[in-house]
Design a binder for these strands. Structure first.
Lengths: 160, 160
DNA sequence: ATAGATGCAAATATTTTGCCGCCAG
DNA sequence: CTGGCGGCAAAATATTTGCATCTAT
């Protein structure tokens, strides 16, 4: 039986294919949260990112659009979005230092798989993972609200 | 059908039941790595820990045994053990800040499940998780060497 | 004896806080 | 108009580095 591939993303592809432009902004509007100039810029950066960004990346990209964004505002906006469950926080196994990376919360959970040599990060969805979560909820009697799965290894290219 | 519980650990129980006392020290000896006074103390602390410790905890416990252990030596020893794949690094979803927690690398991978309200961390082993890893290896053609799965939610007690 | 480890001070990296003036609704 | 928001400076937290000295083998 040939391998049955799940949805995959190479590092250059768009992350969060479920993301619609303007989703984050819409979610905040629905909740009656004030949309400032700075927040609009940051939300746009997050919504259009094609890779995982950390606070520093977010600041740099936001400032390219509008230099009137402050580093502290980046952290406060990240915090806002985390509190509302609109973004997920990743560490990517600290491959690139101790910073955090962010991505708009996807409709379906996915696993992050990083090559420890070349650093490429891929995403992976799996029914088995969904089953695993249900097993945990049942056996440990817990209501799961967030998951973070990061897997490291050596990709085919790097094993040559 | 009643729930079929996997191995579980309440937060007070011994983590890493697979751990034998002296295992870390033995591994370093086998590799011809110099065993200093400070390292012996730190290894003993890790081997006997019953919960996940961060760098600060390790320093405090090591100093109780022998005050001649420096904070920097803790970080350098953690780094040594990580490089040799003898310990795993966790973040526990940053429930308690941005520090890292360490545990001796278990024979079998396990998942960390944290209650977002009371902070209790449990561990969970599962065949489904083993199957999931094999699926990833096959579909993404990667050789997995490290995994970190952290799940957050609300435990039964906290949902009352 | 000596390669490698430690201690110390200082640097670096990342994120958070207090306070005050500003602006979205 | 006004309560939440952003800018600024400074603090807090976590970890790393350079260098002189010490020590396990």
């Amino acid at each position: 039986m040939p391998p049955r591939p799940q949805r995959r993303l190479s590092s250059g592809e768009r992350i969060n294919v479920n993301e619609k432009p303007g989703r984050l902004q819409g979610e905040l509007e629905n909740r009656g949260i004030r949309l400032t100039r700075q927040r609009r810029v940051l939300l746009r950066v997050m919504e259009t990112a094609r890779r995982h960004l950390d606070a520093h990346d977010l600041l740099r990209r936001a400032r390219k659009i509008d230099p009137r964004v402050h580093r502290v505002t980046v952290y406060r906006t990240i915090d806002l979005l985390k509190r509302h469950g609109l973004i997920d926080e990743l560490d990517l196994l600290h491959l690139r230092g101790d910073r955090h990376f962010y991505e708009s919360h996807a409709v379906r959970d996915h696993i992050h798989i990083a090559c420890l040599r070349c650093g490429k990060v891929r995403e992976f969805e799996s029914r088995l993972f969904e089953r695993l979560k249900r097993q945990i909820e049942r056996d440990l009697r817990i209501k799961i609200t967030v998951t973070r799965t990061e897997v490291g290894g050596y990709c085919e290219t790097c094993r040559q």
